[in-house]
Every structure is written in structure tokens, then in C-alpha cells.
Design a binder for these strands. Structure first.
Length: 553
RNA sequence: UGCCCGAUGGUGUAACUGGCAACACGCUUGAUUUUGAUUCAAGAAAGUCCAGGUUCGAGCCCUGGUCGGGCAACCA
């Protein structure tokens, strides 16, 4: 009884290919360049590529597109691998475009021998000029007529290191008047006397993306090479190489990249935020990177669910971040342990409770799941949230106010009798009476209250630090804003509560556990946390109808 | 002044491939609730960019527009 779900355009293509017998199973690949961290946009691509091969029987390779030694580093390779695995996917083969350098070099010689590539001595400026513009045809390079022998000799000399960076390039010989700019004699190889993270100094010429990607797909017999929309114009060239080199005909398909409200999703901009110190690093919990989201408390399940819900198509899109938040809340609600933490304490003294006495009261760990409980200490002096008390409450204020009754979660109903002030007039504590017969689980008081508050007993409270994250940017759609994207950074994206009070059960907080601090949102332990100083990250707030209500008036 | 994509509620994705638009998020209202959470119920919201055409019938097909995006790194 599988739920009948309509197919996206990629699934339609694959099902047709399978039905027509074009393929018996499919091979996809996830091809990151190791020059940055993976972000949510990559997660969409990962879920697609791995999801498709899982669904249709086949496999997915992890292939690092490492053709540019000057920007790529091993550190990125390791992080990318762990992010993919954390998301819950396993590749069939771990591969590198650099594994194919010898083969790609031979492909280049093949093209030269076929008279389809030539060595060009033009400068970068000259080549740019020769390209023309989208509306004007380009012009031939003076070197375009070089004969095969000379091209071969020169190309071999390029490889041997006879020339300096930029002195020569290898170009495909296609058509400088082509309407597709990418077909105007694109560069195939350039000289870079640079150390490569894997091949070391074995090479001083490196293939360009276009000459490496498609051929790598072919070598791996990738059936469906799925990439984002900006590569649509490259497809013609992709197919040209397949035809001229007579290699395995992988096919490229493109989908629209993910855009999210209130954030940026480009590696360049994210790198800038890191380098300029707007965030603490690639895994700063405000970043849309996978590692940041993991640190913030997102679960792989929720990210996969999100990628599933946003769908795949070819039109530009801007996904509302509230969908992402919905996905985490939905998962966290099911798995998180409930705990009580007071962020902004207001002292409450229960005047009719025996001083020095402590009662340990059971409270459920998760009302949605198993019915296990933990013990919470109750005593005469407590803390509640300052926001949960008002001297002159508005009409629908269900919390504590003079004369008003409220339940303390898993404990007793209390009534506020008196407000005690400091010399400056601020409230120092409030004095309440409790109703012994209203004890949670054994309530015979018959009292009805509209509100329930979280609380912490003062004597056993554990001081903790809580980091509250908000959206990184102030505006929903950065793409339509004028000026620099950094002008729109949200100055309040991080708020640190260094002295919150937690119930003692939180002393045993584990690294991978997710918590719901009652009425305060979902949290997890930050890696910077120590047993002496617990540090929690807010993953996401709870939905808050009351906040909406108060905002209205 | 070119070539290539795309256009369905506020957002995203559907519509059995031609039979008068569905699902999710968001929003509103109500019920339940020892989390103003969760859960549940109800509701508002597009007549499918425009104009023609084909057809008994078009969001799906054709033609012409309009609007949006992409394309000229020795980046990927």
C-alpha cells in the first residue's frame, strides 16, 4: 500500500529510460568541488542524486571535482564526506576528477589529432575579446590554424612545464560564431604550476570544468548527470565531447537550485561571511551549511523531509524558511526530551510551603512518545520566567498576576498574593500560596486554571548558557535588494543568555540528545559545552500563538 | 538586441498526459490540552501571465506577445 505520489520530471525521465530498456539500472553522482562546506542547496542535490539511485536500483558515486588546485583543500574533502554520511547517504565509490587526469590528457590529445583542438598563445584578454558577446559573434584566434603536429608538440611541452602560467592554453576548435557562448572555442586546459591536494606536483596543466566533468561522468558510466540550471548552456558542449570522443553517452539534466528566505546560499557569500568574521565559522549555527545545522540541532531526518517536501522543478524558487522550521519541529516534537529551564528568572516564594523541604515530582520526558518520566525537585523558593508575571495583565493573559491562579507544570497550583519590590521599585520577588491538594496527578482541589508555567527550584537550579539564534538576514529576499548583501545582516541573529537556570536533570545532558525546554523551544548541547559550563543552542522556537496575539494589539 | 530556460493561491509542488485545479507550509476560526506546544476540526485564499487558434472540451496542444532568470572567469 504505497502512497501514490506524482513523479517529478527527473523520475519521469528515469522511468521512461528504464521502461524503454535504455538502462537496466541507473548511476548518478554527487560532484562537489572541495573548496567550501556543503549547504542546504547541496542537501537538495544529495537527496536527489542518492534518492533517485536508491529508488530505482543503482548507485551514486561521490566525486570530487578537483580540477583547480589553487582553491581546493583536503580539509574540505573530509568535511564534505562526513556531511553526506551524516545526512544518511552512502556512496558506492569515492572518486576524484584528478583520478582521471591521465585519461583526460589522452582525450585532449585525441581531439588534437582529430583537428578539433589547438594550442593558443593568446593572452586572457585576447581570448576574452575573441569570444565576442552574446549578441555579437566572436573572432578566430591567430593560432587557430596551427597544424596537428605543432599542436601536439606544444601541448606536450605545456605538460612538461616548458611554459609559464597563462602563456598557453588548449582550446577546442568549434565555432567562434556560435550562438552559444560556450561553444566558441572553449578552453580545455590551462597551465597552473600549483600543488594539487592529491596529485601533488605531477601536473602543471589542469583541465577546465567542461573538459573534466562530462568525461568523468562517461568514465564512470553515469547514466543521469543531474546538475543545476546554470549548466544548461554547457549541455551542448557536454554532448559535443561525448560525440567527438566517442565515449559513454551520459546525459545531463538540470533542476532549479534551492533558495531560502532570510539567507544566502552561495559558497562565495558564505565564505565571505566566514572570512570577514560576521559569523564564527562555517559551522556557526546561523549558517545554512550542513555542519552548522547539525551543530544547531537539526536532524538529518528533518532535512531529508524538507528536501522531499520542496520538490524538484525547473523554475526559480524561493522557499519560505517556515517550511524548514516546520520540518524540524515535527521531528523534534517526537524525539526530544522535555526539560524546564528559566531564562530570565523571577523569584517566587511559596509562603505556605515548608522551608527546607524538597519534593521530587515525576514529569514526563516526552508526552508524544514513551511514557518515561524524570524527577523534578520542588521546594519553597522557585524561579519562573519574568515574562510569565504581570502586575496589570491584559485581557487574555493566562499567566501569573496578583490574585490569579496558575499551575506549575507537574507540580501544584499557586496563587499570587503579594509583590515585593526593591528600593528602585523593580520587582524582587513575588509571594504565593500553593494548594497542597492540587498536586499534579492527584488533583482533588477542583480548581481550574488557564495557564501552566515552567519553573525551576532555586536551591537545585543549574546555571547554563543558552544561545538563541534568529535569521541571519533582516530581509526575506536578498536577491531583490540593492547594494551589498552584508548590509542586510540581522544584528540580533545571536542572543546569548549566559545565566539561565535549568532543572538538575539537564546536568546529564548528552551530546546527541535533543531537548525541548518547555515553552521555550528546542535545544541541543553545543560542542563548546563543558560539564562545568553547559551551553545549549536553540534549534528552533516553538510555535507561539500568544506572541502573535500580543503583536496584534 | 542574439541564444537558452521558465511562468498554476502569499510560498513550494501537483493535476491520472485534453475532462472545469489538489497537497503541504503559512494564514484565520473553533475544540481538546498540566507546554498559549502537540493533536483535531472548519475556513479564507489561484480560475492557471496576456491575446489569438485547434477542440464538444485547454493549466496541459499550436502561434504571437509579455514578464522573470541564465549565458561573454585560464571558476565550478
Amino acid at each position: 500500500m504505497t502512497e501514490e505520489k506524482s513523479l517529478n520530471f527527473l523520475e519521469e525521465i528515469i522511468e521512461k529510460d528504464l521502461k524503454d530498456g535504455k538502462h537496466e539500472s541507473i548511476v548518478t553522482r554527487f560532484p562537489p568541488e572541495p573548496n567550501g562546506y556543503l549547504h542546504l542547496g547541496h542537501a537538495k542535490s544529495i537527496c536527489l542524486n542518492f534518492g533517485l539511485s536508491l529508488k530505482y536500483g543503482g548507485y551514486t558515486n561521490l566525486r570530487f571535482d578537483d580540477t583547480n588546485p589553487v582553491t581546493e583543500e583536503t580539509e574540505y574533502v573530509e568535511n564534505i564526506k562526513s556531511d553526506v554520511q551524516w545526512l544518511g547517504f552512502q556512496w558506492k565509490n569515492e572518486l576524484y576528477a584528478s583520478d582521471y587526469f591521465t585519461q583526460l590528457y589522452e582525450f585532449a590529445e585525441t581531439l588534437i589529432k582529430k583537428g578539433l583542438a589547438y594550442v593558443d598563445d593568446s593572452t586572457p584578454e585576447e581570448i576574452a575579446a575573441q569570444k565576442g558577446s552574446p549578441i555579437t559573434p566572436g573572432s578566430d584566434s591567430p593560432c587557430r590554424g596551427r597544424n596537428t603536429e605543432e599542436n601536439l608538440r606544444l601541448f606536450r611541452e605545456m605538460r612538461e612545464g616548458k611554459y609559464k602560467d597563462g602563456e598557453k592554453v588548449l582550446r577546442a576548435k568549434i565555432d567562434m560564431g556560435h550562438t552559444n557562448m560556450h561553444m566558441r572555442d572553449p578552453i580545455l586546459y590551462r597551465i597552473k604550476h600549483a600543488h594539487h591536494h592529491r596529485t601533488g606536483d605531477a601536473w602543471c596543466i589542469y583541465p577546465m570544468y567542461d573538459f573534466a566533468h562530462g568525461q568523468s561522468d562517461a568514465i564512470e558510466k553515469v547514466t543521469h548527470s543531474i546538475c543545476t540550471l546554470e549548466f544548461v548552456p554547457h549541455r551542448e558542449l557536454y554532448n559535443w565531447f561525448i560525440e567527438k570522443l566517442e565515449i559513454y553517452p551520459s546525459r545531463q539534466y538540470e533542476f532549479a537550485r534551492l533558495n531560502l528566505t532570510y539567507t544566502v546560499m552561495s559558497k562565495r557569500k558564505l565564505l565571505q561571511l566566514v572570512n570577514e568574521g560576521h559569523v564564527s565559522g562555517w559551522d556557526d549555527p546561523r549558517m545554512p551549511t550542513i555542519s552548522a545545522m547539525r551543530r544547531r540541532g537539526y536532524t538529518p531526518e528533518s532535512i531529508r523531509d524538507f528536501c522531499d517536501k520542496i520538490g524538484v522543478a525547473k523554475r526559480d524558487n524561493l522557499i519560505d524558511i517556515s517550511l524548514l522550521e516546520f520540518c524540524v519541529r515535527e521531528h523534534l516534537n517526537k524525539i526530544s526530551l522535555r526539560r524546564m529551564v528559566v531564562f530570565d528568572p523571577l523569584k517566587v516564594v511559596i509562603t505556605n510551603y515548608e522551608p527546607g523541604k524538597t519534593e521530587w515530582l515525576p514529569s514526563e520526558n516526552n508526552p508524544e512518545g514513551d511514557q518515561t518520566t524524570r524527577q523534578v525537585p520542588f521546594s519553597q523558593v522557585l524561579y519562573i520566567e519574568r515574562d510569565d508575571f504581570m502586575e496589570v495583565p491584559p485581557k487574555k493573559f493566562f499567566r501569573l498576576a496578583p490574585g490569579q491562579l496558575v499551575r506549575l507544570k507537574s507540580a501544584y497550583i499557586i496563587r499570587c498574593d503579594e509583590v515585593v519590590r526593591n528600593a528602585d521599585g523593580s520587582i524582587s520577588e513575588i509571594r504565593c500560596t500553593y494548594f497542597p491538594e492540587s498536586k499534579s496527578g492527584a488533583d482533588t482541589s477542583g480548581l481550574q486554571v488557564k495557564g501552566t508555567l515552567h519553573w525551576v527550584a532555586a536551591s537545585t537550579a543549574v546555571p547554563v548558557e543558552v544561545r538563541l539564534y534568529d535569521r541571519l538576514f533582516k530581509v526575506e529576499d536578498l536577491s531583490v535588494m540593492e547594494g551589498d548583501f552584508r548590509d542586510y545582516l540581522n544584528p540580533d541573529s545571536l542572543k546569548v543568555i549566559s545565566n539561565a537556570f535549568a532543572e538538575p536533570a539537564l546536568k546529564d545532558a548528552g551530546g546527541s540528545d535533543h531537548y525541548q525546554f518547555l515553552r521555550m523551544g528546542y535545544y541541543c548541547l553545543d560542542p563548546e559545552s563543558t560539564p562545568q559550563k553547559l551551553v545549549f543552542n536553540r534549534t528552533v522556537t516553538l510555535r507561539d500563538m500568544w506572541a502573535k496575539e500580543t503583536k496584534k494589539s
